[in-house]
Simulated assay, not measured.
Amino acid sequence: MTEYPDPTDPAAFPLVERGGLEVEGRLVEASNTTLLCRVESDGLAARAVYKPVTGERPLWDFPDGTLAGREVATYLISETAELGRVPPTVLREGPFGEGMVQLWVETADDEPVRVCAPDEVPPGFRVVLRAVDETGDPVVLAHSADPAVAELAVLDVVVNNTDRKGGHLLSGVDGRIYGVDHGVCLHRDPKLRTVLWGWVGEPLPDGVVDKLRKLRWSLDHGLGESLAAHLTVAEREALVRRTDALLAAGVFPTPGDDWHAIPWPLF
């Protein structure tokens, strides 16, 4: 039995899509029912996160579809455009009914987002916010300048992520950085809240622009139909507008004035 395949391994997606699920425990800090499972199929075994739709708490501003469906939609967008890395994610039946199943990412100690003293910011990190802690000492919110983090920052803009906390970025033992927890994304109205504001106003990298163009083409050639199972017409139209606006601007956007641009808590 091969344990815990690489999330980028082609075998990982069919494993989470069709493998047998056995619940091992519950992640109690999650706001909705989030279960840690073991998934097995064809000689492969891995851990996976399973979020049954029946365990979702209703949100007044996300009345349509399901949070599980929005997680899958974000994965489809990321995977199609090769923009950022989201672990293989599917909507399928599980022990407690239909839900999102996502490959578990084994993590390293390196944290791509940190709150620390100003003189402890790691080299190359970008400072997003300066504040004081409960004792009055100065602290900063900073994140890695790794190109993989920059791509996830762009993905946040595209999917209108309203809850990109620091703990939603994972440094895998494979050296890659993954984004997870995309249940409150893809609203039709602007709601972007993220800790990844370190590139405000800077030009988008050429490679990212190419990926956005690929996404835009895909939305008119198949991806839009795939997203229809999870998003309303208005939400899909808003996704197209955000992609067009980002391509036209060619720069990382500036936070809006109509809502809090950074989620709380930060992690």
Rank of each mutant, 00 (worst) to 15 (best):
E56F: 07
D244C: 08
D244H: 05
L192P: 00
V49D: 01
T33E: 14
V159F: 12
V105P: 01
R92Q: 08
G166D: 12
R242G: 01
E235Q: 15
Y50G: 08
K214W: 07
W259V: 08
F252V: 01
A142C: 15
R216N: 09
E17N: 09
T162Q: 12
L266F: 14
E98C: 06
H187S: 15
P263S: 06
R26V: 13
L196P: 10
V105C: 01
P147K: 12
C37Q: 00
E17L: 13
L152Y: 00
W217D: 13
E106M: 00
D6Q: 09
P58V: 12
L15W: 06
L192N: 02
D64H: 14
A11E: 14
K211A: 12
S171F: 03
R176H: 14
H143K: 04
V132A: 10
A228R: 13
V72P: 07
T33S: 12
L246Y: 09
E134W: 07
A248K: 11
D6T: 11
G250C: 01
M1S: 14
P118R: 11
V90L: 08
R57S: 13
L192S: 05
A81L: 14
F252S: 02
K51L: 11
T33V: 14
L266H: 13
A46H: 03
V53I: 15
L59S: 09
V113N: 09
E151Y: 00
D163N: 12
D189N: 08
M100H: 03
N32I: 11
P112K: 03
D64C: 08
A249Y: 00
S218F: 09
D257N: 09
C185A: 14
P58M: 11
G25C: 00
D257W: 11
L223G: 03
P253Y: 03
T135W: 11
V115D: 10
L155R: 10
L91E: 02
T243W: 02
A45G: 14
G97A: 04
G198P: 10
P265F: 11
E79L: 02
S171T: 15
R130W: 05
L223N: 06
G84H: 02
P263V: 03
G43Y: 01
P14Y: 03
V233R: 15
V86L: 09
L59V: 10
G25W: 00
P87S: 01
D6R: 12
I77E: 01
G175L: 12
H260Y: 07
R57I: 14
D61C: 08
A131Y: 06
E29T: 13
D64G: 01
G207P: 10
P263C: 08
G207S: 13
P122R: 05
D181M: 05
L141C: 13
E202A: 02
T2N: 07
A153H: 09
P255H: 03
P118E: 11
I177N: 06
V157W: 14
L152G: 02
V184S: 07
G224V: 06
C37Y: 01
